[in-house]
């Protein structure tokens, strides 16, 4: 089973990506939790009766969230796909999902990401990250261990720089 960095540890991934185009005769395998590309997910028009759970979705880092409000409300998982590790639009997209859309499911980063970016990803509201290479997962764990304090807090508990320090 594929592994994923989730909630601070490396663990088996209970989700499976379904990337290929699917035909009309597609039948979901029993006991598989799917992540579908957005267009395929939308193709089901809300009817996921054959699935054991509502599938998650994959969206691009610069997706227009306003047009996805219905899906966001329903899905248990949103995977944001980074097209390049220098394209940071996904950091804002994730923050908006947590802050504005109050999305409280699993928020996953995938695609072109560096392990060094994981501490930032977590602070923007992601709680899982996919890396195809096992050594990147190990690095991600090592890098988040000593992440330490910050000036801004995170998307869950944002703060202004001096807020807590002057109270001391």
């Amino acid at each position: 089973m594929q592994q994923v960095f989730k909630n601070g540890v490396i663990q088996d991934d209970h989700w499976s990506h379904l990337d290929a185009q699917i035909g009309a005769d597609f039948t979901p395998e029993p006991e598989v939790h799917y992540i579908l590309p957005l267009d395929i997910w939308q193709g089901f028009a809300g009817d996921f009766s054959g699935f054991i759970s509502c599938p998650g979705i994959t969206i691009s880092a610069d997706a227009d969230l306003a047009s996805l409000a219905d899906a966001i409300e329903r899905v248990p998982l949103i995977a944001i796909e980074f097209c390049s590790f220098t394209d940071g639009s996904g950091f804002s997209t994730a923050s908006l999902l947590r802050e504005d859309y109050k999305f409280d499911g699993e928020l996953r980063a995938m695609g072109a990401i560096l392990p060094d970016q994981v501490p930032y990803l977590l602070r923007c509201g992601f709680n899982s990250v996919e890396f195809p290479r096992a050594e990147d997962l190990q690095h991600a764990v090592a890098l988040t261990g000593g992440a330490g304090q910050s000036y801004q807090g995170d998307v869950e508990t944002p703060r202004t720089p001096f807020q807590q320090r002057i109270a001391k």
């Binding site: 590790f85 220098t86 394209d87 940071g88 950091f91 804002s92 923050s95 970016q117 501490p119 930032y120 990803l121 602070r123 923007c124 910050s150 000036y151 801004q152 995170d154 202004t160 720089p161 001096f162």
Partner: peptide
């Protein structure tokens, strides 16, 4: 100084 701190290692804006 407030902006310096706020912008230093801001997680959302490191890859603009």
């Amino acid at each position: 100084e407030i902006i310096r701190q706020w912008s230093t290692l801001h997680p959302e804006f490191a890859f603009l």
